[in-house]
Design a protein around this nucleic acid. Structure first.
Length: 589
RNA sequence: GGGGCCGUAGCUCAAUUGGUUAGAGUACCGGACUGUCGAUCCGGGGGUUGCGGGUUCGAGUCCCGUCGGCCUCGCCA
């Protein structure tokens, strides 16, 4: 080892010892006769002192040290004078009096300092990721990520799960996200697909009798990115045989408790709260509401259909809905300009044509449209939304879908801006009973809400032929702070039932055989009842770390256009490589 | 594919209504300094204002296009 201790180790108890540290030059303070260096590694920082009277040769070398040089320093741990300790450093009561200095590697002037006064733009940080990774915030994320996977493996190991690796080079099963494709050299014109998830493999493992499976699995989806979405990401992928939905929920409750203990050191209360899909959609307008605060959606159909405000009245007459939320005490916090522009633009993103708002003042509604509501109607609105003096009531009139999406977005923004919750809180809950299928108006058919292998809540089978939209899936999502944090279901293990679902989705037998034949065949050879779930590992790390961006918890993330600014991927390749793969690039337009 | 924000020195930012030689802090280079911890002080170098067009007597500023980064709708079974 080139060092005896790390830069975070040394304390008053080490005084008098001769030690060797290695690290990066974080700061240098050159007084000519005396030079101070803050030496940094991932464990901390230690002040090094070079004194001219001690050894002038070392001193001269110390004069030339610059940011991010990598050095090895040997010296004696000495106590700092009482008035010169640094309470900002864990090692601030001591310093290292240098006797020997080796410059292990001189650094070019770095494009930015890891702990400089201001963080450079993300483009530069991504290009020089190896420097960005020296920042404590990114190192914290990598450490948390390690701890989370460790806690996960320990937890499932204790329950007898087997970690099984599934192929990265697999078969493309169209539908769902776009696949990343890998051309085959041996099979001209054929392609492998990178897995969007190990979904089919883990079901095959259940048929294979492996019973309890877990994998920290890399997944790939060629879709547009978001702050919480990367083209390649990691799932904690789980599948179990011979279980009910209840069994699965309890196992994952335990996992969430183990993860929270490992990441935050706290014991969360079990069982995790459970909501139904219909419940959260009605109360929060979202299938993944942030449950750290209330501000639930309220339907005011009774008032809206009778009032003289045309937009409300017409919407109800056309079969739509008028729903609103109460931003407690926010009447004076938003100007008319913000409400008429910013808030309107926000809901417009979700298809809403406008936003109606009232301030509760003197027991009445104050608004440019208040005149369209009788005294009685105003009181009814105030009562329904529990309005009090100084509250701001916001309404959207549109289809059920649009009011949900728009008010959910409004609620998220208001909750954040009005600071209605503790940003550090981790609030996890189950959402159960998603619809099995949703109507796809464009294609004139039913689409699977989760995936085509999801089983049905038994008492809803009766609606299969008459009212498919009413059939609930035996599925479940974990939600955390407004993010979808996990998703799973009890699967279909009966080939007859599977065929019924394919029929509903208008996937004909021939097509099903072509796409998923291997799975259907497996179901015919004694497939046990089984189900599972997949947790988005990156998102969980992001949430536990308190970051709002998934890139900050991934060592080498990609940009919104899915390129890697550090390596330059994706890149053009040699024509010879293309020839081996029988691939020709058509002219760019 | 659509909408929004952004791009000026290595970095973070400024630059009046379109008007003189595009500035500041920091970094970098040189000098001074034995107790600093955002060290301080003195001096210096450093610019294709992302790129390409256009309007104008004159463009960092206005217009069009394009490239890149971020946020977002669609998309993500």
């Amino acid at each position: 080892m080139l060092r005896t201790h790390t830069c975070g180790d040394l304390r008053r108890t080490h005084v008098g010892q001769t030690v060797t540290l290695c690290g990066w030059v974080d700061k240098y303070r050159d007084h000519r006769g005396i030079v101070f260096i803050d030496l940094r590694d991932r464990y901390g920082k230690t002040q090094i002192k070079f004194n001219l009277s001690d050894d002038s040769d070392i001193q001269k070398t110390a004069w030339d040290l610059r940011y991010e040089d990598v050095v090895q320093v040997t010296g004696e741990v000495v106590e700092r004078p009482a008035d010169m300790t640094n309470p900002k450093l864990a090692t601030g009561e001591i310093e290292l009096r240098a006797k020997d200095l080796v410059v292990l590697n001189k650094s070019k002037t770095p494009p930015f300092e890891p702990e400089g006064q201001s963080l450079p733009n993300e483009e530069l940080r991504l290009k020089y990721r190896f420097i960005d990774l020296r920042r404590p915030e990114l190192q914290k994320a990598m450490i948390m990520r390690h701890k989370l996977t460790k806690a996960t493996r320990d937890y499932f190991d204790s329950l007898g799960f087997l970690e099984v690796e599934t192929p990265i080079l697999g078969r493309s099963t169209p539908e769902g996200a776009r696949d990343y494709l890998v051309p085959s050299r041996v099979h001209q014109g054929s392609f492998y697909a990178l897995p969007q998830s190990p979904q089919l493999y883990k079901q095959l493992l259940m048929v294979g009798g492996l019973d309890r499976y877990v994998q920290i699995a890399r997944c790939f989806r060629d879709e547009d990115l978001r702050a919480d979405r990367q083209p390649e990401f990691t799932q904690i992928d789980v599948e179990m045989a011979f279980i009910t939905r209840e069994d699965l929920l309890q196992v994952i409750d335990g996992l969430v408790a183990a993860m929270t203990k490992a990441m935050r050191g706290i014991d969360i209360k079990l069982p995790l709260p459970r909501y139904t899909y219909n419940d959260v959609m009605e109360r929060f307008g979202s299938d993944k509401p942030d449950l750290r605060f209330g501000m639930e959606l309220v339907d005011i159909k009774d008032v809206a259909e009778k009032c003289e405000f045309g937009v409300f009245k017409q919407t109800i007459a056309n079969g739509g809905r008028v729903r609103g939320i109460n931003a407690k005490g926010a009447a004076d916090k938003y100007s008319r300009r913000i409400l008429d522009n910013d808030m309107k633009n926000l809901v417009a993103d979700y298809g809403a044509k406008g936003i109606a708002y009232f301030k509760v003042t003197g027991g009445k509604l104050d608004s440019s449209i208040a005149k369209f509501f009788t005294e009685e109607q105003q009181q009814a609105i105030i009562a329904k939304l529990n309005g009090e003096e100084g509250d701001l009531l916001l309404f959207v009139a549109d289809t059920n879908k649009v009011t949900s999406a728009a008010l959910s977005a409004l609620r998220s923004r208001l909750g954040r801006e009005l600071q209605l919750y503790d940003p550090a809180e981790i609030n996890v809950a189950w959402v159960l009973d998603f619809p099995l299928v949703t109507w796809n108006a464009d294609e004139n058919r039913w689409d699977a809400e989760h995936h085509p292998f999801c089983s049905v809540v038994p008492e809803d089978e009766q609606y299969f032929d008459t009212d498919p939209g009413r059939v609930r899936a035996s599925s479940y999502d974990l939600i955390c702070n407004g993010y979808e944090a996990a998703s799973g279901s009890i699967r279909i293990h009966d080939p007859v039932m599977q065929q019924k679902v394919f029929d509903l989705l208008k996937i004909n037998a021939e097509e099903a055989e072509k796409r998923f034949g291997f799975l259907l065949e497996a179901l015919r050879y004694g497939a046990p009842p089984h189900g599972g779930i997949a947790l988005g590992l990156d998102r969980w790390v992001m949430l536990y770390a308190g970051y709002d961006n998934i890139r900050d918890v991934i060592a080498f993330p990609k940009t919104q256009k899915a390129s890697d600014l550090l390596t330059g991927a994706p890149s053009e390749v040699d024509t010879r490589q293309l020839r081996d793969l029988h691939i020709a690039i058509s002219e760019r337009k």
